[in-house]
Design a protein around this nucleic acid. Structure first.
Length: 979
DNA sequence: ACCGCCGGGTGCC
DNA sequence: ACCGCCGGGTGCC
């Protein structure tokens, strides 16, 4: 896949990758350019299952070219310009010729057919996917009956001969093309693949990339905009810039990138396609600011500031004006959108305000300006209340934390899949009414509602942020579309100001034939949070998300690391950027040229990205000052010596475990006993923390190999509970990311449920485990709760401390003596360990709070608010389970963090550190990692280093195969147990 | 003439 | 299509 190509093609790209990888090794060095330097990372392992061969565009080489003819032009409406790209499409059911090959223009309109003799040759090649055949019409305009077409044959090297042979049978010979066609149409590599591509020096390339974002000199990205009065938070300069940029993008009628007006036509400079109809402006884009720069706040400000027709959300008493136009602050370019223009032209609205009127400030709280309001009476968009007595001041409506009790995320997910979803609605105070929907007015009106789609883990963060940043007296209706009682009535949704939902719900809704309100409502605006979640174009989730209809579309993505050039397509497709909604045009005009090192492709990519993306990093500067001046962050590793008793227990368990595992090694059955191995490792890790964490002995854990299937299954589930409840942050071997709805196979390997189901589905009927090739089937997958409520701890045991707790308590006490108000976060993967620590904290008189996965959303919010409070009585310590809370979790009240046990995945640790080292942190952050000397924990550090190295790009290594993956796991186990 | 030639009809797959 | 191709009309000069 892309990895292979990039390795064999332009050396500058290879260098780029290495440069990138080296930098990611140290997260603090991430720069804006990393967003793109990452384009070649391919993060899908089992690609055979997840992507079909035809989509594997990147590994194709040009076999050669051929001049052919398109016939039958007069029967079709599709027209083609000189040098315009065309798409070839097989038409096997054509009643005259089963070899028929249709020719379509960029818009998908049929232009004609490939002449039958040539079609006879092409059909076999196309049907067997021996080559992709791409066409460019050299002189397309004004041809009445036929037109020539230059065909380029692209395929995998191993298919080249077969294609040449096949063409020869039909009397065709592939050769070079006349040089006239655009470079990216034929591919610059034809002369000598990869070698002749224009080589830029690394310095040049780097400069190019850096320019893309660090050179934010464009007006639209440096202008600031004060938010609507409805925003209760003072925006930072870079957030005002984001707001200005987003508002101007939403109100802009500019042509999308690569489109020009030429005479009466709109012309696409990439494909040479022209049409009379103006292509839709891209009223949105990608907000790719680094984590912690406040993307959520920027979007909330956007919603409130550009609420309707360039006007802000009504604040204060203006809200109460019944059937009156709101005339307050006016933002953006004040260019009417197309819809508005249409409305105007309808003639019904003779008295629509002139532009001057619109700009005329009409203070929202000046309720005595009758005449003026009369003047505006007929303006269509009103913010009126249904009730006649809507005049009273309305108290705050967003009461996420109390009005709704989101339960545990997992329960939610389970309830959802169990068909009993749970609803949460941020309810309004009884007696007030939802303002009349704007979308229920005349059809030309813009819809009212903003739909926000996010992963479940950040849903509560959105609610919190609305709560925090919307002024208390602003009546913003937010509906959380989630859970069993959610209203399936599109009318209800389209009356809201904001609807919050998750990707999972969107996918469910999409699959639902009758009740799919999310896909029935025409939204004003849709915002994809963590937009990279739609990067797999084949995923149902992506398809479901892409089919949401909205005027304005935004993608938020803060972890550019996950973006590859490939991923960008889904986003562009979501933004409805013509002609990229069709993958072929994206590949032919941008992706392939770029991966082949074509300079033109690169500059096209740059101008595209520049046009639709705003990205600032933690190190970006505004007028020479960093946008974000985060205090320093220091990470210390503190080695712990176990006490003699602890060491004794540890060593005997270690020896026992080693014996078990080395037996598996000798038998070659390590992966088959993976569950047992993991249990051993968990036990050892637990012993490093506290002896009481381990209740059973290992001998009860090791598989005996007998027992009924039910017993085996139960044992397995128990083992997995141990493993999973410990927060062992295994990645899914299929998607290589942290587990999403983990399930375990009978062979004890854990995958994301969607991932493994896809594998099972595609390998039917004899699906094999991707890790051990054991038989798997859907019915035998066991769903594992991500967090197990406390059950392992032996309650009757008398409390005692441990070496690690002692070290922690020493540090905490020391610190309290220095400054009693310093707040700390204590992180462990073992929630039981946190409970043991609680006792120690109580004994020493610390006030603490706690956040773990077993808590309801309500309790979590309470805990966070409590901890973040600056009250003198507020807790100074937060006990946090490593994986609790999403990326949005903000614990900046703490400036100290104690990581009690190392995580498998260094990225998980980093993410955890960022919860206090982020926007809003004013103090230097000191992080202490406790690691037990001469133990599995030290070995885990080694593995962390290796993983970092790997992530930092072992040059020249190709993508690991499933076998290499297995070997890597086995090697990891060896390292962990010193075998 | 089992041809050549003429000129009208016709035209994707 | 200002082509090619088809097939009917036609047939010394």
């Amino acid at each position: 896949m892309s990895w292979r190509v990039s390795m064999s093609s332009g050396s500058s790209w290879r260098f780029l990758q290495s440069a990138q990888y080296r930098r990611t090794g140290n997260p603090s060095l991430l720069s804006s350019s990393d967003f793109f330097l990452n384009f070649e990372i391919d993060d899908v392992i089992l690609s055979d299952d997840s992507t079909s061969a035809e989509e594997d565009f990147d590994s194709l080489v040009l076999f050669g070219s051929l001049r052919g003819n398109v016939v039958g032009l007069r029967y079709y409406t599709g027209v083609v310009n000189n040098n315009e790209m065309v798409a070839l499409q097989r038409e096997p059911n054509n009643q005259y010729d089963r070899n028929a090959v249709k020719v379509n223009n960029i818009n998908g309109e049929q232009v004609g057919h490939i002449k039958k003799e040539l079609a006879a040759a092409l059909s076999y090649i196309m049907d067997n996917k021996l080559a992709r055949v791409e066409g460019v019409v050299p002189h397309g305009a004004n041809n009445a009956f036929t037109m020539p077409v230059n065909l380029n044959f692209w395929g995998k090297p191993e298919n080249k001969q077969a294609v040449l042979d096949r063409m020869k049978i039909h009397g065709y010979k592939l050769g070079p093309l006349p040089a006239s066609s655009p470079a990216f149409a034929s591919g610059p590599s034809f002369k000598a693949p990869g070698l002749q591509a224009v080589q830029m020096t690394t310095e040049q390339l780097k400069t190019e990339f850096d320019k893309m974002f660090e050179d934010l000199k464009e007006d639209d990205k440096t202008k600031m905009l004060e938010p609507s009065k409805a925003v209760g938070t003072v925006l930072l300069p870079h957030q005002k810039q984001a707001l200005s940029w987003m508002v101007s993008r939403e109100n802009s009628n500019n042509l999308p990138p690569f489109w020009e007006q030429r005479n009466k036509f709109y012309y696409n400079t990439l494909t040479n396609f022209a049409e009379k109809e103006k292509p839709e402006s891209i009223r949105g884009g990608i907000l790719a600011d680094d984590m912690g720069l406040g993307k959520t706040l920027s979007v909330i400000a956007l919603i409130l500031t550009n609420f309707h027709n360039g006007q802000p959300f009504p604040t204060g008493k203006s809200r109460q004006l019944k059937k009156e136009s709101y005339c307050g602050e006016m933002y953006g370019e004040s260019v009417p959108s197309q819809k508005q223009s249409k409305a105007k032209n309808k003639g019904k609205n003779e008295s629509l305000m002139s532009r001057k009127d619109k700009m005329d400030p009409c203070p929202s709280d000046n309720s005595s300006s009758r005449p003026k309001r009369e003047q505006h009476r007929k303006v269509k968009y009103t913010f009126s209340s249904d009730s006649e007595d809507g005049g009273e001041s309305i108290p705050r409506k967003i009461k996420a934390s109390s009005a709704c009790s989101l339960q545990d995320d997992n329960q939610f997910a389970m309830a959802l899949f169990g068909g009993t979803p749970i609803t949460k609605k941020i309810s309004k105070k009884k007696g007030t009414t939802i303002p009349k929907t704007l979308s229920s007015g005349p059809s030309d009106e813009l819809p009212r509602t903003t739909l926000i789609i996010c992963p479940l883990s950040v849903l509560s963060n959105w609610i919190d942020q609305f709560e925090q940043h919307v002024k208390p007296d602003v009546q913003l209706n937010i509906y959380v579309y989630y859970g069993p009682e959610r209203s399936k009535d599109p009318e209800v949704l389209s009356k809201q100001d904001v609807v919050l939902t998750t990707y999972t719900v969107v996918t469910h809704d999409y699959g639902n034939k009758s009740e799919n309100p999310l896909h029935k409502v025409k939204w004003l605006r849709v915002v994809l949070d963590e937009g990279h979640t739609i990067r797999n174009p084949n995923a149902q989730q992506t398809k479901a998300t892409l089919s949401i209809q909205a005027e304005r579309r935004w993608v938020l993505t803060g972890t550019p690391i996950q973006n590859s050039l490939k991923d960008l397509w889904s986003l562009l497709s979501f933004l409805k950027l013509k002609p990229f909604t069709e993958r072929e045009w994206w590949h032919r005009t941008i992706q392939r040229p770029v991966t082949m090192g074509d300079q033109g492709g690169l500059s096209r990519l740059q101008s595209l990205i520049k046009n639709i993306t705003l990205r600032r990093t933690k190190t970006s500067k505004i007028k020479g000052k960093p946008v974000l001046e985060l205090p320093e962050r220091k990470v210390f590793i503190q080695r712990i010596e176990l006490s003699d008793e602890e060491r004794h227990v540890y060593n005997s368990m270690r020896d026992e475990g080693k014996a078990i595992i080395s037996r598996y090694f000798n038998e070659g059955t390590v992966l088959a006993h993976y569950a047992d191995v993991l249990v051993v490792l968990v036990r050892l890790r637990q012993l490093c923390c506290h002896p009481h964490l381990v209740s059973s002995t290992l001998s009860s854990v090791a598989s005996t190999g007998d027992g009924t299937p039910e017993e085996l299954r139960e044992k397995l589930v128990n083992k997995m509970k141990i493993v999973l409840s410990s927060g062992s942050d295994e990645e899914c071997a299929i998607c290589l990311e942290s587990l999403n709805m983990p399930v375990i196979t009978y062979c004890a390997h854990v995958f994301c449920k969607p991932c493994i189901c896809q594998v099972i589905h595609s390998e039917q009927p004899n699906a094999k485990c991707p890790l051990c090739r054991g038989n798997i089937c859907q019915e035998h997958l066991v769903e594992c709760p991500e967090e197990e409520p406390e059950s392992l701890l032996k309650q009757e045991q008398k409390w005692m401390s441990s070496s690690k707790i002692n070290a922690l308590m020493y540090a905490l006490t020391e610190q309290r003596n220095k400054d009693p108000r310093i707040k700390s976060i204590i992180v462990s993967q073992f929630t039981n360990f946190l409970s043991l620590i609680e006792t120690a904290l109580r004994e020493s008189g610390f006030i603490f709070t706690r956040l773990d996965g077993s808590m309801t959303q309500k309790k979590r919010t309470e805990a966070i608010q409590c901890f973040q409070s600056s009250d003198a009585e507020s807790p100074t310590i937060m006990l946090l389970s490593l994986k609790a809370g999403g990326v949005g979790l903000n614990l900046t009240a703490a400036s100290r963090l104690f990581l009690m046990d190392p995580a498998w995945n260094p990225a998980a640790e980093e993410q955890c550190f960022d919860r206090c080292h982020r926007l809003g942190q004013t103090k230097e952050v000191i992080i202490t990692k406790f690691v037990v000397k001469d133990s599995v924990e030290e070995n885990m550090l080694k593995i962390q280093d290796k993983k970092r190295e790997l992530a930092a790009g072992a040059f020249g290594t190709k993508k690991p195969t499933s076998n290499e993956m297995k070997q890597a796991r086995i090697a990891e186990i060896r390292t962990l147990v010193d075998l």
